[in-house]
Amino acid sequence: MTQKNPTVNIKEAPTGLALKIYNWKKSLKTLTPYLMLVGISLWLGTYYLFVEGWELPRFNKLPGPVEVITEWINPDPDWGISMFSPIYYEHIMISCRRIMIAFTIATCLGVPLGLFMGWSKTFRDYTFPILEVLRPIPILAWVPLAILMFSGFETPVIYLATLASLFVTTLNTLLGVESIDKEYFRAAKCLGSKPHHVFLHIVVPGSLPFIFTGLQISIGVAWFSLVAAEMVSGEFGLGYMIMDSYMNITYVTMVIGMLTLGFVGWVSSALVRLAGNRMMQWRVRALALEGR
């Protein structure tokens, strides 16, 4: 009686872990993961050939991939730092902590600042020229000021990273408010919104896509300026590790630091993207409809 028809075998939608596994299996059927692997191996292969294989001029002084990877996974590192040494994780943790503090401060200040600048013309008239003058000053130019203002190693470094990402966040948020279609404001007013309703229900959600694009850039900029600051002043952190290994001519460790930095930076902006998708389900669907 209950004959199963394979074509109308409607399964329940998977949730949680099952959904993740399902999506992961689905992605294995596309070309994407394989192309990524090919891309990485091409890059590694070129790196290997240039440095260790053919020993091309200019490249022959650099540590090659084999050397770097063996050192990285060496329980007893020749140059002092590998994934088995506690100091390695200390550098990472200290840099991450600084980034977290700087990024949080910059976001908590920059987003409201940008929102108000976009929302209120008066506030914008007051603040925009200041933002535009301060923004182009390279972060390295702030270093002496930071050292003058703050004592110790920690605060100046955090200050510089905060400053850099603050400008990016503010500007992107402001652009986000400007990007909102005027019709939404009109519709909201027509429906009886008071100014604070407009702010909460139009300005904030409408600028979220730009805010999160801005936050992704801003966390990148924060890493950039953090490392720069750590190179100038600091006694721990990945930037310090890179600079220190350069000074001590331990180039292998330097490259390990660089690659670690790249990886940690990538993870951090992926986290920001994840948070954005969580908060903007409507946008996730819009992009999905466009096939992205």
Binding site: R186, A187, A188, K189, C190, L191, H201, M280, W282, R283
Partner: peptide
Amino acid sequence: PGMDRMVVFQETALMPWLTAYQNVVFGPKI
């Protein structure tokens, strides 16, 4: 502008960040 006169716009002016239901109840809700 006032809610005695409702405007339906040229291109859609539904807030993209609200569901259809949330859009419809937007006025009375706020």
